[in-house]
């Protein structure tokens, strides 16, 4: 079988919810082994796009191919770490049980102990550096620790493509840096293509080699320095946007009187700085 260079092809994808067009004509391609950031403000459609790739979101138009195969349903070689799961501290489940469910969650019958599976779980825990708290209840772990366990839960099926939805939200600076370098390490060691969503691109700047930028329901993609530019983002937002680089950080700024700035940008002030 030919090894296709494109791991993910999103072709003219549109998604609408009743009375609301969320994604319009989104197209981009991820090469095998890419580490890509999916950047957009709150409500820009990041989760919707990831759910579409997983095949658990009905599309209004467009096509998605993963490793040369059209997406039918969510089951397969795609790993997924969902946005903000709150595990109750009372859940009777150890972190390592959750990792194991990543492999066996769909299986029928009672779980029987298996040496091979235990070894695999241990291997995944080691990959995400979680052995120290693997035996604790999942609900008692910190946000960063839960994030690691969820990554192991997704990795254990050996996906070729790993989607992570806002894995850095709610993490402090140190935990953010740890998770980013962990993702980089996992991606190169296990030869996985990674697509990670974030509302702030700065923590990912050093790690990602590609970017998909969502605004106004549309997307621009390419290398970071190709996409995060005044002309490209201005075209995307349909309004003049300045991109400023200072101290190795990127600021995206909409300048103008408050009543002139389109609502689409104003809503996105979490990501775009509006200067009146």
């Amino acid at each position: 079988m030919r090894n296709i260079d494109e791991m993910l092809i999103v072709d003219q994808l549109s998604v609408a919810f009743p009375g609301r067009q969320v994604l319009t004509d989104v197209s981009f391609t991820l090469q095998r082994g890419a580490f890509c950031g999916l950047i957009g403000a709150n409500g820009s459609g990041k989760t919707t796009l990831l759910r579409s790739i997983l095949g658990i979101q009905p599309l209004s138009a467009g096509q998605i191919r993963i490793d040369g195969v059209s997406r039918g349903n969510g089951f397969g070689s795609v790993g997924y770490v969902p946005q903000k799961i709150q595990f109750d501290p009372d859940m009777p489940l150890r972190a390592l049980d959750l990792v194991e469910l990543g492999l066996t969650g769909h299986k029928l019958g009672l779980p029987l102990p298996s040496k091979a599976r235990t070894r695999l779980v241990d291997e995944m825990l080691a990959a995400v550096d979680a052995q120290n708290f693997a035996d604790q209840r999942i609900g008692n772990l910190s946000g960063g620790q839960q994030q690691r366990i969820l990554i192991a839960h997704a990795l254990i099926r050996r996906p070729k493509l790993l989607l992570l939805d806002e894995p850095l939200a709610n993490l402090d600076i140190r935990a953010t840096a740890e998770i980013v370098s962990l993702l980089r390490k996992v991606a190169s060691e296990h030869d996985i293509t990674v697509l990670v969503s974030a509302h702030d691109m700065n923590p990912l700047l050093g790690a990602m080699d590609r970017i998909v930028y969502l605004a106004n329901g549309r997307a621009a993609s390419g290398r970071t320095d190709e996409v995060v530019r005044t002309e490209v983002l201005s075209a995307l937002y349909g309004y003049h946007i300045d991109v400023i680089r200072v101290h190795g950080r990127v600021l995206v700024i909409a300048a103008g009187a408050a009543n002139e700035i389109p609502a689409a940008i104003e809503q996105h002030t979490a990501h775009v700085t509006v200067i009146p």
Binding site: L54, G74, F75, V78, I85, L98, G102, G105, H106
Partner: peptide
């Protein structure tokens, strides 16, 4: 535990 995790499988 979480319906999305289940759906994905």
């Amino acid at each position: 535990l979480d319906s999305t995790l289940a759906e994905v499988q």
